[in-house]
């Protein structure tokens, strides 16, 4: 018991230290600026305020990104320059081809289903009185970790031979309907889809919440006018609702595409990339920790970044356009 108590105390001490440290840093910096001559203060103070942020961003994001770019041209132990060899391996090896194919599958299916289902659910719940409850239920998985979700779904997918009772929900349903149980995570015909389904389950709530907010911003009069003119709900959906929230749909879809590109936790925990379920990020982790090939791991990371650069450019353009309107 005293062991527990000392652990709890250590936890509290660590938390206090971290929190007090950061507050002290800024108060200290500000009073240092206060010691300067009056005239200099307005010129120095901004740097005291953004300095810590710039230092951390430089150290944790800018420098490592450039360094990884450099490492990707060196060999496994970062000792010798090997030119484009790592990229050649990344683009031609069979292992990576499987990963690329699967990531493409993740991008297409997870985006289509998360955004599609999110939109359908947002439209449907808009018409029922228990909307808040229904939305909470769909949104709930957003709060669950990928690891937790992996355990939840490994249990849903659990497989037992045909002659004993099934304990996994999905196989029990199949057997009850007269089918044969399926090894969802080992059968190469279905395992990728089984993994992506977990991603969809996790992301749909996020899509739904944002799309629902956009739906509510459509002026009611426009919809009423269309209904008075005799347009069917189907036509209203495709010709008014979807075009009016298309920019939000684009933003949501981009977010899901990036998440699909970086998919890691679900695959790592549920199959670790075995039986044809490898993805880019998991492969990178393996190259880094299992094979200690830092050149290849870096090249894989650079490929991931390159795939995201267009999104980054679009982000910056959108931000600049917004600024001009301010």
């Amino acid at each position: 018991m005293s062991d527990w108590l000392s652990q709890v105390l250590a936890t509290l001490a660590a938390i206090l230290l971290g929190v007090a440290g950061i507050a002290g840093l800024f108060l200290g910096l500000d009073s240092l600026v206060g010691l300067l001559p009056q005239r200099l203060q307005p010129r120095v103070r901004p740097w005291a305020y953004i300095g810590p942020a710039l230092l951390i961003l430089g150290f944790y994001l800018v420098y490592p990104t450039l360094n990884t770019l450099y490492l990707s041209f060196l060999d496994a132990r970062s000792e010798r320059f090997v030119g484009l060899q790592n990229y050649l391996w990344t683009l031609t090896s069979p292992e990576m081809h499987v990963a690329f194919r699967n990531n493409l599958l993740w991008i297409v299916l997870m985006t289509t289903f998360s955004v599609g289902l999110g939109l359908i659910i947002a439209v449907l719940v808009d018409r029922v009185r228990y909307e808040p409850i229904a939305k909470s239920v769909i949104f709930l998985p957003v709060a669950i970790s990928f690891v937790g979700a992996s355990v939840i779904w490994r249990f849903v997918y659990a497989y037992k031979p045909a002659n004993v009772p099934q304990i996994g929900l999905l196989n029990a349903a199949i057997v009850a309907l007269g089918g044969r149980p399926i090894g969802w995570l080992v059968d190469t015909a279905v395992n990728n889809f089984a993994l992506i389904a977990v991603g969809v389950w996790l992301q749909t709530g996020f899509c739904m919440v944002i799309l629902s907010a956009a739906l509510k911003a459509i002026p009611r009069e426009i919809l009423e006018a269309a209904r008075v003119d005799g347009a069917s709900e189907w036509r209203i959906f495709w010709q008014i609702t979807v075009p009016m929230i298309s920019s939000t749909i684009a933003v949501v879809a981009t977010t899901v595409v990036i998440n699909a590109l970086k998919a890691f936790d679900i695959v790592f925990v549920m199959t670790n990339g075995t039986r044809g379920t490898e993805v880019i990020a998991n492969r990178m982790y393996k190259e880094m920790f299992s094979f200690l090939n830092f050149g290849r791991a870096s090249a894989i990371a650079v490929i991931l970044l390159l795939a995201i650069v267009p999104v980054m450019a679009a982000n910056i353009r959108r931000f600049q356009a917004q600024e001009e309107m301010r």
Binding site: I50, V62, L304, N315, I316
Partner: peptide, 28 residues
């Protein structure tokens, strides 16, 4: 606050929004 490079630095922050974590792991 006004300081030189305010716009450029902020645009860099916006760009960093989407840098994949994986890019930073090995050097760090």
């Amino acid at each position: 606050m006004n300081f030189p490079g305010r716009q450029v630095l902020f645009v860099i922050v916006v760009g960093l929004l989407v840098v994949p974590l994986q890019m930073t792991l090995i050097p760090l």
